[in-house]
Nucleic acid binder design. Structure first.
Lengths: 263, 263
DNA sequence: CGTTCCCTTGAGTAGTTTCAATACTTGTGG
DNA sequence: CCACAAGTATTGAAACTACTCAAGGGAACG
């Protein structure tokens, strides 16, 4: 894909290079990319299971996920349910810029690294940059779109299909930000975590994964996912990437796409 | 509540008076409220079942819901699933301002009325008003918060509790925008629609509603919901309004709240 | 080399779906 | 005013999906 003499976005912009990659990053000017990169102050490393933000607490800064994965989770009497997963390039709690507090916990899945930016700084920069503002706004709405899709899937699909959908989505999103690999994906996920994501017990998740394995759709073993036929996985999980608003899945003519990206 | 000589927000601002009522509307200046009200151009009436926006189509304007209800729905082979419901005061497809197209359909539930504003106009106004921008941004993130809560509930609760939660949330949101009533709520919802919202069959929804009726928790008959003990309904549906970011549920000291609202 | 976490399997139970059939409501036309 | 149609609500029985309780196996880490 990338010719060797062209430096990758993540080399040019170590903290923010994967932000909106494959979505509308191409509509960011070089100045905007630099502005975004330079906004980022300290970075912070988290260990597995470490909580970055606790629900309800007031926040005056947001974080860009640079490396690793994070989970949106919500505790309740007798367990925790996992709402969503973040991959590098996600501006994970940018919504706190408008919300001031989150309604969920952000927990590191495996070791991860985030870069921080204060809301004060953000406000200063954005007051002068309506286009960048609109793109940041866009990025926070992607989460909502992912939530909506997940609601549909919870309502329609049964356990094995739900995991298949999670696998397909995760893989697709990793591809978008330049982290996809060929026949397998390595994550710190366990069967119990997948169960929490799908709203089933870990025992049932185990059987669902066994089903996918026997059917030759996907083989998940100790955090590594092996898939031979990806479109088969996607079909089984009823995965249609339109909701991810990637540049490819937009189904728009080039001219229209150009309008969309630049307006 | 309101003294008679004080005119209600919805009288002062017929199109936008319920927007963010009970949330952070109080942080809008009179100028901002007027600016918002005057942005609105034509209004449009919809009949039951009419589609306002179809998924995927490009949009260059957004709508404020002035009267009635709207549903976010997604069709798929063999049925439609309902993602969420909107009440008056919701800026129902403001997210299209950043997204350019929606990933779901917007369908009128019963007759409804919306007021329209073009994205061009919106962009022109917002370029000069960072505070208003941030509040509009905030309002689009409320939908995401509602989605997240619903994901948790789908993962944790069974059918009867799910409807209870829907009833409790709907009632709470109607209260916020000044449309709540005492012991009953009238909606154009049917058992089949509730079933689509909860991801169960309409037959099972019928039995779940029967259960709520026998237990004396809620009585839903042909669109009207009768509830004697509201906190009992909320407890049964595990409803906690924190995710709705209302001014009351913020759990913050007054001083802090003031900061949150004005920053 | 044992502890701990993660995964696997079996049997019985609860929640939900399917198929099938029967009423109740509301609106319409005769 | 009644008959009828269409949509909505209700009920029963059998099949399926997922949950609970209980026990055992495997891999990783000190």
């Amino acid at each position: 894909m990338l010719k060797s003499h062209i430096r990758a976005e993540w080399d040019l912009y170590p903290n923010t290079g994967r932000f909106l990659l494959g979505r509308r990053r191409s509509s960011l000017t070089v100045e905007e990319r630099c502005s975004l990169e330079q906004m980022m102050g300290d970075s912070r490393a988290l260990v597995d299971g470490e909580t970055l933000v606790r629900r309800g607490e007031l926040i005056d800064r947001s974080c860009m996920l640079v490396e690793g994965f994070m989970l949106q989770s919500a505790e309740h009497d007798g367990g925790r349910s996992i709402i969503s997963i973040h991959v590098p390039g996600d501006f994970i709690d940018l919504n706190a810029y408008a919300l001031k507090r989150l309604d969920y916990d952000l927990v590191s899945l495996g070791p991860s690294k985030v870069a921080l930016v204060s809301h004060e700084r953000l406000a200063r920069e954005l007051a002068q940059q309506p286009h960048l503002t609109r793109l940041l706004w866009f990025s926070t709405l992607l989460d909502a779109a992912i939530h909506r899709e997940w609601i549909c899937k919870l309502e329609q699909l049964q356990a094995a299909q739900r995991v298949a959908h999670i696998f397909a989505e995760l893989w697709y999103r990793l591809d978008l930000v330049g982290l996809g690999s060929a026949g397998s994906v390595r994550t710190p996920l366990t069967q119990a975590l997948l169960a929490s994501m799908c709203g089933v017990t870990s025992i049932h998740m185990n059987r669902a994964l066994g089903h996918l394995r026997r059917e030759g759709i996907a083989d998940f073993r100790r955090g590594t996912l092996y898939v031979e036929n990806r479109s088969r996985l996607e079909a089984y999980g009823a995965f249609n990437p339109a909701y991810l608003y990637s540049d490819e899945s937009s189904n728009l003519s080039e001219a229209t796409l150009h309008d969309v990206l630049t307006v």
